[in-house]
Computed example of a mutant assay.
Amino acid sequence: MCNLGEMIARENIEKGLVQGQKKKNIELITNLMNSLSISFSKAVELLKVSKDKVLEIEKYFKS
Rank of each mutant, 00 (worst) to 15 (best):
M1D: 15
M1E: 14
M1P: 09
C2M: 15
C2P: 12
C2L: 14
C2F: 15
N3V: 08
N3A: 07
N3G: 06
N3D: 15
L4D: 14
G5R: 09
G5Y: 12
G5L: 13
G5A: 09
G5S: 13
G5E: 14
E6H: 07
E6G: 10
M7N: 12
M7C: 07
I8P: 03
I8R: 12
I8W: 07
A9C: 08
A9R: 14
A9W: 08
R10M: 11
R10Q: 11
E11P: 01
E11H: 12
E11T: 02
I13P: 02
I13H: 08
K15Q: 14
K15S: 06
K15I: 02
G16Y: 08
L17W: 05
L17D: 13
L17E: 13
V18H: 11
V18R: 12
Q19F: 06
Q19D: 14
Q21M: 13
Q21Y: 05
K22W: 00
K23G: 05
K23L: 12
K24D: 14
K24I: 10
K24Q: 15
N25F: 11
I26M: 06
E27R: 12
L28C: 05
I29W: 03
I29C: 01
I29T: 03
I29M: 04
T30N: 03
T30M: 02
T30L: 02
T30P: 00
N31F: 04
N31P: 05
N31D: 15
N31M: 11
N31W: 03
L32I: 04
L32K: 09
L32T: 04
N34T: 08
L36S: 12
L36D: 14
L36G: 05
L36I: 00
L36V: 01
L36Y: 06
S37V: 01
S37T: 08
S37Q: 12
I38W: 07
I38L: 06
I38H: 11
S39A: 05
S39Y: 02
S39L: 01
S39C: 05
A43I: 04
A43N: 09
A43K: 06
V44L: 05
V44D: 13
E45A: 07
E45Y: 07
L46Q: 14
L47V: 05
L47P: 05
L47H: 07
V49G: 09
V49P: 11
V49C: 10
V49I: 13
S50I: 02
S50N: 11
S50K: 11
S50R: 09
S50C: 00
D52C: 04
K53C: 06
K53T: 09
K53Y: 06
V54M: 10
L55D: 14
E56V: 04
E56F: 03
E56D: 13
E56G: 02
I57C: 00
E58S: 13
E58N: 11
E58R: 10
K59L: 02
K59F: 00
Y60M: 03
Y60R: 01
Y60A: 09
F61A: 04
K62A: 01
S63E: 15
S63M: 04
